[in-house]
Computed example of a mutant assay.
Amino acid sequence: MGGGDGYRSVAYFVNWGIYGRKYPPQKIPYSKLTHVLYAFADNRDDGTVILTDKWADTDIHYDGDSWNDVGNNLYGCLKQLNLAKKQNRNLKVLLSVGGWTYTNTNKHFDGPASTPQGRKRFADSCVDLIKDLGFDGIDLDWEYPQNADQGQQLLLLLREIRSAMDAYADKLAAEGGYGTEGRPHFVLSIAAPGGEQFYKHYPLREIASVLDFVNLMAYDFSGSWDAHSGHLSNLFPSNSSPTCTPFNIQSILDAYTSAGVPADKIVLGCPLYGRAFQNTAGIGQSFNGIGAGSFEQGVWDYKDLPRPGADVYYDEEAGASYAYDNATQTLVSYDTVEMAQRKAQYIRQHNLGGAMWWELSGDRQDEGSIVDSVS
């Protein structure tokens, strides 16, 4: 599902992944992707967008990097991404600003997004980072506007970023004597919620008109917060066991397209991880505990699944896969390769814009790779 067939193949790369996860940018399957979203940047109270890990982003030296270069040079993950773009000329790298911690826990978007000055500072600093570090655009991940006023502020912020990027593109075209044909286009996307309690605050039609595409976070449909074990990222509702499908992709897509979001701008987000449920008799049943995980409790990287002793099942009605260990009564809901391929088929059937994955360090590095299998 790469760019050659007209679909977007989008994946998040997290800058903290170079540490415990041991996932440097050299492991990214660039040839399988059209867009890499570099996560996450943050912002100051005045709206200035900033990088969050200088060592990972711009300083760490990888093989081939010299310690004797003269001048102010770029290293770190961002140098590797720029080198990858030279080898993959259609690849776009976007700076993803926000994320759960910065925008939900710390509410960093709330202040700047609420004023014209904050939005302008935010947008202008995005362009500064594009100029300085070679990004091809911006991905905004606000989790989540809490009311209609904040939904409108998100729209205004996106318009400000679009305007600033377009002005910079015009400047480059004029300076280079390219005219309109040679004018660069900077990409703008958002990570968008699957829950109606959040997307109801978004002026979706207007937002979509400003964006190149929408990364629909079609995962975390079930988890530790629920009373029953459920599917993480199912396509359809389950009529026979409604408790296992509190959300489903089909109804979310229907809501987005009915609100005026073109289907071909919707990029279907898919998980490269699974969520665990302990002491449960099966899917849709009560559970007690979530147990261990790859890096956090109850969350397993796809590359670590299925767990030893578990059998893998496909729920035809819900359009979802999971693993269950009868001996330990542990269930993990996740996408298998076969399920990922089923979603790729679904994307084509519904004329969607492509697929997105959160996040790359969870994938396998062998023939079992999900990104490889559907890109």
Score class of each variant (00 low, 15 high):
residue 180 T to L: 11
residue 354 G to K: 01
residue 302 Y to H: 13
residue 250 Q to G: 05
residue 309 G to H: 07
residue 269 G to M: 03
residue 246 P to E: 08
residue 96 S to D: 15
residue 130 I to N: 02
residue 289 G to C: 12
residue 102 Y to N: 14
residue 253 L to G: 08
residue 252 I to P: 00
residue 84 A to F: 04
residue 197 Q to Y: 13
residue 374 V to H: 04
residue 364 R to E: 11
residue 343 K to E: 09
residue 314 Y to T: 14
residue 107 K to G: 00
residue 106 N to C: 07
residue 111 G to P: 06
residue 64 G to N: 09
residue 363 D to V: 11
residue 66 S to M: 03
residue 94 L to H: 07
residue 269 G to K: 02
residue 179 G to Q: 02
residue 203 P to N: 12
residue 311 D to H: 14
residue 154 L to Q: 11
residue 186 F to V: 02
residue 52 T to Y: 08
residue 10 V to S: 06
residue 67 W to D: 12
residue 346 Y to H: 00
residue 33 L to F: 04
residue 314 Y to R: 14
residue 33 L to Q: 02
residue 70 V to M: 04
residue 17 G to T: 13
residue 285 Q to I: 01
residue 184 P to N: 00
residue 77 C to F: 06
residue 168 Y to V: 09
residue 273 Y to Q: 07
residue 85 K to R: 13
residue 55 W to D: 12
residue 272 L to F: 12
residue 68 N to E: 14
residue 88 N to K: 07
residue 358 W to F: 13
residue 153 Q to V: 07
residue 182 G to E: 11
residue 156 L to P: 02
residue 262 P to R: 00
residue 269 G to H: 06
residue 175 E to Y: 05
residue 366 D to T: 04
residue 3 G to T: 00
residue 26 Q to V: 05
residue 315 D to M: 04
residue 81 L to T: 11
residue 341 Q to M: 11
residue 316 E to L: 09
residue 343 K to G: 04
residue 358 W to S: 02
residue 141 D to W: 03
residue 238 S to L: 03
residue 249 I to T: 08
residue 90 N to R: 08
residue 329 Q to R: 14
residue 299 V to I: 15
residue 274 G to R: 12
residue 126 C to N: 04
residue 233 S to W: 10
residue 271 P to Q: 07
residue 358 W to D: 00
residue 291 G to I: 07
residue 81 L to Q: 09
residue 343 K to F: 09
residue 41 A to Y: 11
residue 164 A to P: 06
residue 78 L to Y: 07
residue 254 D to H: 08
residue 345 Q to P: 07
residue 341 Q to T: 05
residue 117 Q to S: 12
residue 227 A to H: 15
residue 139 D to R: 03
residue 79 K to W: 10
residue 281 A to M: 01
residue 211 L to P: 04
residue 330 T to E: 09
residue 312 V to A: 09
residue 136 D to W: 04
residue 107 K to F: 08
residue 305 L to H: 03
residue 17 G to L: 00
residue 297 Q to V: 00
residue 70 V to E: 15
residue 82 N to I: 08
residue 186 F to S: 02
residue 75 Y to D: 00
residue 201 H to N: 15
residue 69 D to P: 03
residue 297 Q to F: 10
residue 174 A to V: 12
residue 363 D to T: 12
residue 70 V to T: 15
residue 53 D to W: 10
residue 247 F to N: 10
residue 278 Q to Y: 15
residue 314 Y to V: 14
residue 103 T to Y: 06
residue 297 Q to M: 12
residue 128 D to Q: 13
residue 288 N to P: 01
residue 198 F to D: 15
residue 159 R to M: 14
residue 35 H to K: 01
residue 189 S to F: 09
residue 280 T to C: 03
residue 125 S to G: 02
